[in-house]
Design a protein around this nucleic acid. Structure first.
Lengths: 230, 230
DNA sequence: TACCTCTGTCAAGAAGCCGTTAAGATCAGC
DNA sequence: GCTGATCTTAACGGCTTCTTGACAGAGGTA
């Protein structure tokens, strides 16, 4: 990777200055945002190789930023936070963050963890960053948060969309009940498997030609669900 | 991933006991080693989804273990260490570790970081050679939880699949009745060898050209079963 | 040959999971 | 505060899957 692109979402000017000095010195290209909204815009427009995210933003909760980001992007996210509570860490990591570094942080460790994240990304290779998915009549654009069925836009509720987006991210493979519940409803809902049944019915009614005989949204009895690929 | 396999390389018995309790309760399959050498052997033979490695081993340096492991495996490694120095962290992370957790550690955080590592691995997924198996017309894709017979997908119930997957993991070698029962039905079912006969019949009916004369799913009388490997 | 153990097959009842519907609770926008 | 959309929760029928019992065949042994 010639010059890795990093988006820093952080409101404290001191820390931004500090990161700017440390990262540009190491050959990173840096883009900065002071709010969650701006950060999401930067992440979308700069196509970064890595996102560094402060949890304590003025406009929105850090977890919400991760969640929004993860709807369309698999870019590695390193969380930077002054909150050192275990439950904050667990929530961020389960919410889609790839690493969690407490403040105050040692810059050498942060740089090492950044190298790990970039290594992971390099292993994935180019195409799995794909943000659109098509099978049969069904087309999902994760970047634009749009779902088309035979060319016509289908409106999905937030939960319906998150459920579908999760299946898209793992298209072709079985996603277990636990995993779906954790990624859509959060780690406290792992036992509520009836949610899944209700929302799978919704999705099938909106997306399947014959909801009683699913072509795309397949049940793997006793295990989970799978979105048919190609 | 049905039941993630974890290899723990750690010499302190207390911490091993602690990890055993924490991980098996979360649905992980655990294999343990007390030395670096044993750990490398376990990692090679168990094909784990994740390795947890203590840096302070009696026989060899933790960094050396990572290095040897990385010569042939990309399995995620989480380092557990009492040494909290920044240079130790940087060395481990740059040496090939995927994460670094200091002792004493919070179990919730460790579990969350494990889920992150498994998520990364799942995204790599698909083509990785180690998770698919082929013999004759029969093709088993453990990563996607799919079974193909002459190119056509075969539907297996959860127990049927777990039984086949266990045989695949030991392909070519005999797996004893006890071991199959333990891995498929759990440790309380080791005496129910009846189950095995019923489900082996199911599998053969679904997978064998002539179920009465098995080509793939072979009986080893008095011992167990074996899946033919080419 | 007769007997015994191990193995394979079939089938039926039980149990649990899944899909569907609908009603009340909650939230967001006006 | 009203209204419509969305989410949660409960109920229930149907269906797959699991468990269990019965029995027959294979193969070894006295």
């Amino acid at each position: 990777m010639a010059e890795p692109v990093v988006v820093v979402i952080e409101d404290e000017p001191q820390i931004r200055r500090f990161l700017r000095a440390a990262l540009t010195g190491q050959g990173y290209r840096l883009f900065e945002a002071g709010t969650g909204e701006d950060g999401l815009i930067e992440a979308a427009s700069r196509q970064p190789d890595l996102v560094i995210l402060d949890l304590g933003l003025p406009d929105m909760d850090g977890l919400a930023v991760i969640k929004r980001l993860r709807e369309w992007s698999a870019v590695p996210v390193i969380v930077l936070s002054a909150r050192g509570q275990e439950r904050d860490k667990v929530a961020a990591l389960d919410g889609g963050a790839d690493d969690y570094v407490g403040k105050p942080f040692a810059v050498g460790e942060l740089l090492a963890r950044m190298r790990v994240a970039l290594r992971h990304r390099a292993q994935l290779g180019g195409e799995s960053v794909e943000s659109t998915f098509t099978v049969g009549d069904l087309h999902v654009d994760l970047g634009r948060r749009r779902v088309l069925l035979g060319g016509a836009e289908v409106h999905l509720s937030p939960i319906e969309y998150r459920l579908l987006a999760t299946l898209v991210r793992y298209a072709g493979r079985v996603v277990t009940h636990r995993q779906l519940l954790r990624e859509v409803w959060g780690p406290n809902a792992e036992a509520q498997s009836h949610y899944l049944r209700v929302y799978m019915t919704h999705l099938r009614r909106k997306l399947e030609p014959d909801p009683a005989r699913p072509r795309y949204l397949l049940t793997e009895p006793g295990v989970g669900y799978r979105l048919l690929a190609e």
